[in-house]
């Protein structure tokens, strides 16, 4: 026996406000999908529409096979390194024609931290008028889980089979150093903060950068149902600081770490060979990083 579902009443009903449509093939527990839904809500609240520019990453797989599209807005697929260049062109023409829609780059950590770094840096330096959102799952997910410069120290990937030796690149410090109008980190475990900061960005001009800590159960070897819990642990233990930077200069910590031990975060992900990791060094590094940010926020606070 089959049961027909009225689409409008189903839990996956989709309105025009929803960026991703039902039927996409994204994994359960995917942080990127949560991020896209929160972005949809932020755009709807602001009464804005957008065009997406997406390089090679899970975000372009989300669109699905031609002639269908998993997105409710126009999407321009860019070459891996060049989404900020493509978006610069689209945004320039939008501005020449006084059109209101946002141009948003939606890219993974490979396209942001690695192959797209020069292009991203140049678009930020030019203060191009678009939003760049990196959903950072700390791995090349599409290709089956290789290290990127966003992969944290200790994590096993197919190209770091014994665990990564190097630390994760501090992309927020790099972007802040460009003195862009706005840069902020986003955690799906704190959706109100997530939405508030997107709203801030949606009401600004110039180059705006967002970093989403994006769980990837396939790559993290974690339980899909625990994705939100994992990113919550990353925030509470200080591994993923939640903060915003205005003009690359003025800092505000949005969610303070509670001092939770990061061991629980590592224990729940099989990508981390926890017995072989120097957790003390990791604790010290996280503590120092958060202290540095707290001092910056104290000395260079956001003017209210």
């Amino acid at each position: 026996m089959t049961t027909s579902i009225e689409l409008e009443k189903s839990p996956i009903a989709c309105s025009e406000e929803c960026l991703i449509r039902p039927g996409n093939t994204n994994c359960g527990g995917c942080g990127m999908s949560v991020g896209l839904n929160l972005l949809s809500r932020a755009l709807a609240k602001a009464g804005q529409r957008c065009e997406l520019v997406i390089p090679a990453c899970c975000g372009i797989v989300t669109a699905g096979g031609y002639p269908t599209t998993g997105y409710s807005v126009p999407v321009l697929a860019s070459t891996f390194a060049a989404s900020p260049a493509f978006a610069s062109g689209v945004a320039a023409v939008r501005d020449l024609n006084n059109e209101p829609q946002q141009v948003i780059c939606w890219a993974g950590d490979g396209g942001t931290y690695d192959i797209g770094m020069a292009t991203l840096s140049a678009a930020a330096e030019r203060n191009e008028n678009f939003i760049y959102i990196c959903y950072d799952n700390e791995i090349y997910g599409n290709t089956g889980g290789q290290r990127s410069s966003a992969t944290p120290v200790g994590a096993k990937t197919t190209t770091t089979p014994s665990g990564k030796i190097e630390s994760k690149k501090d992309i927020m410090a790099i972007m802040a150093a460009h003195r862009i109008p706005y840069a902020a980190t986003l955690s799906a475990a704190h959706p109100e903060d997530f939405l508030r900061k997107l709203d801030t960005g949606l009401h600004m001009n110039g180059f705006r950068f967002f970093l989403i800590h994006s769980p990837c159960p396939t790559g993290w070897k974690s339980e899909p149902a625990e994705s939100i819990e994992l990113v919550r642990l990353a925030v509470s233990s200080g591994l993923f600081p939640v903060y915003e930077v205005f003009d690359g200069w003025r800092y505000r910590i949005n969610i303070k770490p509670t001092g939770a031990d990061p061991v629980e975060y590592y224990r729940r992900q099989n990508r981390f060979p926890i017995d072989a990791m120097d957790l003390d060094a990791i604790r010290k590094h996280a503590s120092a990083s958060n202290e540095r940010l707290a001092r910056l926020a104290a000395v260079f606070p956001v003017a209210n």
């Binding site: 065009e51 372009i60 096979g65 998993g70 997105y71 807005v73 999407v75």
Partner: peptide, 11 residues
Amino acid sequence: LNRPTTVGGLT
């Protein structure tokens, strides 16, 4: 905006 297509996606 009124014709959402994905340009350059999977074919």
